[in-house]
C-alpha cells in the first residue's frame, strides 16, 4: 500500500469537500441545504489550516499552534454565521411561507 499519510492527500480531501460544498450551494433549492454547503466549505478551510500546521515547513512548534488557533476561530465564525443565517431564513419564512429560494423574488412583502 502506498503511503497516504502525506500533505497532498489531506489537501485533496479538503479540495473535494470544498467543491462538494460549492456544488451544494449552487444546485440546492432549499435555503437550509445551502447553509449545509457553506458549513462544508468552512470545514474544508479549517482542515486546510490544520493540515498545513501539521506538515509545516519549519520544525518550530509555534507554527503548529498558529494553524490550529486559526481553525478554532474559523469554527466560531461558522457557528455565528449559521445562527445569523437561520434567523434570516426564519424571518423570510414568515413572509413567504416556504424556504425555497426560487420563490423569494419580491422586494416588498
Amino acid at each position: 500500500m502506498t503511503y497516504l499519510f502525506c500533505l497532498e492527500s489531506f489537501l485533496i480531501v479538503s479540495a473535494f469537500l470544498f467543491v462538494l460544498g460549492l456544488v451544494i450551494v449552487l444546485t440546492k433549492h432549499n435555503a437550509i441545504q445551502i447553509i449545509m454547503g457553506i458549513e462544508l466549505i468552512f470545514n474544508s478551510v479549517a482542515l486546510n489550516f490544520v493540515t498545513f500546521s501539521y506538515f509545516r515547513p519549519q520544525l518550530d512548534a509555534s507554527y503548529q499552534l498558529s494553524g490550529q488557533m486559526i481553525s478554532i476561530f474559523v469554527i466560531v465564525i461558522a457557528a455565528a454565521d449559521t445562527c445569523a443565517a437561520l434567523a434570516i431564513i426564519l424571518s423570510l419564512f414568515k413572509v413567504y411561507k416556504t424556504t425555497r429560494i426560487q420563490s423569494m423574488n419580491r422586494l416588498k412583502g
Partner: peptide, 26 residues
C-alpha cells in the same frame, strides 16, 4: 481527521460546536 493531525482539542471542539450546536440549530 483533526485528531489524526495532532489536534485533539480542535477535534473535540469540532464535535461539540458543530455536531452539538450547529447541527441542532439546523
Amino acid at each position: 481527521l483533526y485528531i489524526l493531525l495532532g489536534a485533539p482539542f480542535l477535534g473535540m471542539a469540532q464535535i461539540m460546536v458543530y455536531a452539538g450546536g450547529v447541527l441542532v440549530l439546523i
